[in-house]
Design a protein around this nucleic acid. Sequence first.
DNA 1: TTGGCGGCACCCG
DNA 2: TCGGGTGCCGCCA
Length: 99
Amino acid sequence: MNLEQKIYKKLLEVPKGKITTYGELAKAVGLKNGQRVVGKIMNKNPYPAIIPCHRVVMSTGKIGGYAYGEHIKTKMLSDEGIEIKNGKIMNLENTVYRF
DNA sequence: TTGGCGGCACCCG
DNA sequence: TCGGGTGCCGCCA
């Protein structure tokens, strides 16, 4: 199974209303410092319709980037009940999903 | 607080 | 086949 497949599968474990970080997701698939790899994979996302790549944020709580625009990502997250202010997740520790 | 560079899989030439 | 560039980050100075 490809690394990207693993990443997508892991990401699908994140339930609606929860999020994860690039670093955590990277470690979840066996990468120590694979944050950028995850970002790249997300950007190349071949299944944007079924992969909730908007549920992945930076470890600092900032939204991070998004292939279709950061504001779209922000909106989708807020639609799932995640509180965002000034482009940052409010209760990150309470919202992040642990694998 | 802000900036810069490190680290890694994948794509392209 | 091989080398270098790229990318939705993260940590340290």
